[in-house]
Nucleic acid binder design. Structure first.
Lengths: 334, 334
DNA sequence: CGCCGGTATGGAAGCGATTCCACCCTAGCG
DNA sequence: CGCTAGGGTGGAATCGCTTCCATACCGGCG
């Protein structure tokens, strides 16, 4: 691999001049610039990112830490990040966290390991340490899907999301509405399921109704468990005519279970999901859409802005807009 | 950020000694090691990856170049890579290629840009340049889902996959078998669809039957187009009783279109997919399973082995095993 | 007791870029 | 015509690590 020295020698100039040419400094005469550029092209020289990073004191890497690709919603977020990072001069590195135990270590490594210019964290809780050590590092941090003090956050209003789903079902005339959600303590201590449930209940209570305990199920792992739960609900003497599922995956499971029992969706049963992952548009699932792709792209834009030295309010919390997308798994009661 | 100098000063030793401690060199006395380690722990020192890379002459990055996360099968492959890389001391960087035009540039950058210790390429064709310049770089290369001269490849036998699907349908008694595949020239010049089709036809011909031209559809973009195509096939005066789809996504679309028309699957129509992406197990799709996750993990293992200096046959081509997974979208004819 | 081999150690020389400082040269001014 | 200001340039110092070489120290052997 050619170095800047080789180019300098061959072009008969100093390394400083070559560096200036590479970095488009105006302090080079046109003739010199042309000569150097010619040599660069000729021998196919490419500056070493590594040496550049060391010299500059910061790398060209944006690290994403996420509970990884098992969940389609995370993948969609990641696509958002990638779409922005791709257009920048930064590289995207992926730190996946499959087990909750790993996450503190991975996070620490990403932030304080010196490898990252900026770090984007998705859906993970901050280890206590992060919050404290926060100031000891100048690495820009952005948090997605979780609120952390002193770090710009991109979140949604889960509570409102629950209300949105309930309202839609209520407006369709449903009075017997069930709920299938993630088990609250599952995996990384997510609380969004709880908040969605709370909003859901509140909206229903606002119409003078209530959600009977028997209509509420918490499941551990996506589709299969959701299907089982749906089966139980349908076996009830007075089964619900509508279901709010806190994720699209859960909704898929519920729909499958219903159809397997000859219960028509949306004829006999309406189902609302949450997320709007890519598949849901295809399948025609009615769902509370959260801007997953956008959460990724905006977090990357934020990181880039901080990297560029723009003043970003580190205490800011952006609530991304939620929207009920009505498709073909919900319909009027009876 | 503390440097190796700080540690050395504080521990009253030379930088060389600290370096030896960090790298577990045996040439350090136990007492010295303990003292240095204590200082390291105390001030929370972490060696700079960047400086290390520059000094060592190679980075700690494994780059994956892939037509990115739009396709669930690529995501599954990526998960395989991530699962292996995570356990190593390398970082995983993602170069996504959304448009075919980008791909040569991205590839070049990944391989010759000096940022990667090794590069894993998925599903992309090699630009002519790659093949030529091959020797000019010592960066280990692994290719997945495509055959490239002089580079270890992880592929499948698409032809055989097509036969597998046809055989299964034939064995179930079907005689009117349709085909829905990717448009051959689509996106990045994939040819696997053609090969699967060829194998499929061959197997059918082997039973003395033929695939009428009217039973064959090529679609551009996954589910929607597949659904349309399926609709056309079902509208035929003598519609097929079974379908081979060259991807699970296409199979989903076909099934949806069938059910929307009251055609029961597998009662009236059997559908075989190809890939076995995560969702397919949930949905109960019969499909030709290709080891997507494994293709990723093995490619990473290969890359790691080459990095470790193990002798890997660069002309090797590994054909990963294909397997027909029978679930609930295929059944006996009539 | 002196010497030798080997173990521990300190520190200088790289790795390949950036950047700052010193220097040269030329054009413009008095 | 001499001096200055400033654009263009070369090259040393620097970033934080690894590694090699020189040196120091130890015990055992002749």
């Amino acid at each position: 691999m050619a170095t800047i020295q080789d180019v300098a020698r061959r072009a008969g100039v100093g390394v400083g001049t070559v560096s200036r040419v590479i970095n488009n400094s105006p302090l080079v005469s046109d003739t010199t610039r042309a000569r150097v550029q010619a040599v660069i092209d000729e021998i196919g020289y490419r500056p070493s990112t590594v040496a550049r990073a060391l010299s500059l004191g910061h790398s060209s890497i944006i690290t994403v830490v996420a509970p990884f690709l098992t969940d389609p919603s995370v993948v969609l977020r990641l696509r958002g990040v990638a779409s922005v990072v791709r257009e920048s001069e930064y590289d995207l590195v992926l730190y996946d966290v499959e087990a909750p135990e790993q996450h503190a270590a991975r996070l620490d490594d990403a932030i304080y390991g010196g490898r990252s210019a900026a770090v984007i964290v998705m859906s993970l809780a901050a280890s206590g340490a992060i919050a404290q050590k926060r100031e000891s590092s100048k690495v820009p941090l952005v948090w997605v899907d979780r609120r952390i003090d002193g770090v710009p956050c991109l979140t949604i209003d889960d509570h409102e999301g629950g209300r949105l789903a309930a309202r839609h079902l209520l407006e369709l005339g449903h009075r017997h509405i069930g709920f299938i959600g993630d088990r609250p303590d599952e995996r990384f201590g997510f609380t969004s399921g709880d908040d969605r449930f709370a909003g859901f209940c509140e909206e229903i209570a606002a119409s003078g109704l209530a959600v009977p305990g028997g209509y509420v199920r918490r499941v551990a792992h996506g589709m299969e468990d959701a299907a089982t739960a749906m089966g139980e609900l349908l076996a009830l003497p007075d089964p619900p005519t509508a279901i709010f599922a806190t994720s699209d995956l859960i909704a898929y499971g519920a729909i499958e279970a219903a159809r397997a029992r000859g219960v028509r969706v949306p004829g006999d049963l309406s189902v609302v999901g949450f997320d709007d992952i890519a598949m849901s548009a295809h399948i025609g699932l009615t769902t509370v859409r959260q801007p997953l792709f956008e959460s990724g792209s905006r977090s990357a834009e934020l990181a880039l802005a901080m990297l560029a030295g723009d003043d970003v309010d580190t205490t800011a919390e952006w609530d991304l807009p939620l929207e009920l997308v009505e498709r073909s798994t919900t319909g009027p009661h009876r």
